[in-house]
Amino acid sequence: MRLRVAENVVSRDLADESVLLNLDTGTYFGLDAVGTRLWHLLAEHGSPESAIETLLTEYDVDAPRLQKDVDTLIDQLIDKKLLTTDAARTPSSR
C-alpha cells in the first residue's frame, strides 16, 4: 500500500508536534511528536513498512506495538481524509 498526503491538506510543524488542516473539510488536527515523525516519513516515502523500520531505530518500542499503533493512526488519517492510498492506482494511469 502506498500512501500520500491528500490534496488540499497543509501541515505546519510546531516544535516537535504539528498541526494539519484539511482545506476541503475545514477541519484542523494536531499530531504529537511520534505522530509527526510518522507523518513526515509517510509524506516522504509513502510506505508504512519503511516508516516502521525507521521508527524502530529511533524510538524505544517493540515492533508489534509499533505496527499496531501505526496501523491505527494511518486508519485515522485516511478516515479524516488527511492521507489517501494509491492502492488502486497504477503508475501508467498518470
Binding site: 488542516l21 475545514g26 477541519t27 484542523y28 488536527f29 494536531g30 499530531l31 504529537d32 511528536a33 511520534v34 505522530g35 510518522l38 531505530t57 529511533e58 524510538y59 524505544d60 518500542v61 509499533l66 499503533d69 501505526v70 493512526l73 485515522q76 488519517l77 479524516k80
Partner: peptide
C-alpha cells in the same frame, strides 16, 4: 545509540477552522 522514549502516536481533532 540511545533511542527516544516512545508514546503512542495520537491524532487530535481540534474542530472547524471557521
Amino acid at each position: 545509540s540511545p533511542k527516544k522514549p516512545y508514546n503512542t502516536p495520537t491524532l487530535v481533532e481540534y474542530g472547524d477552522i471557521a
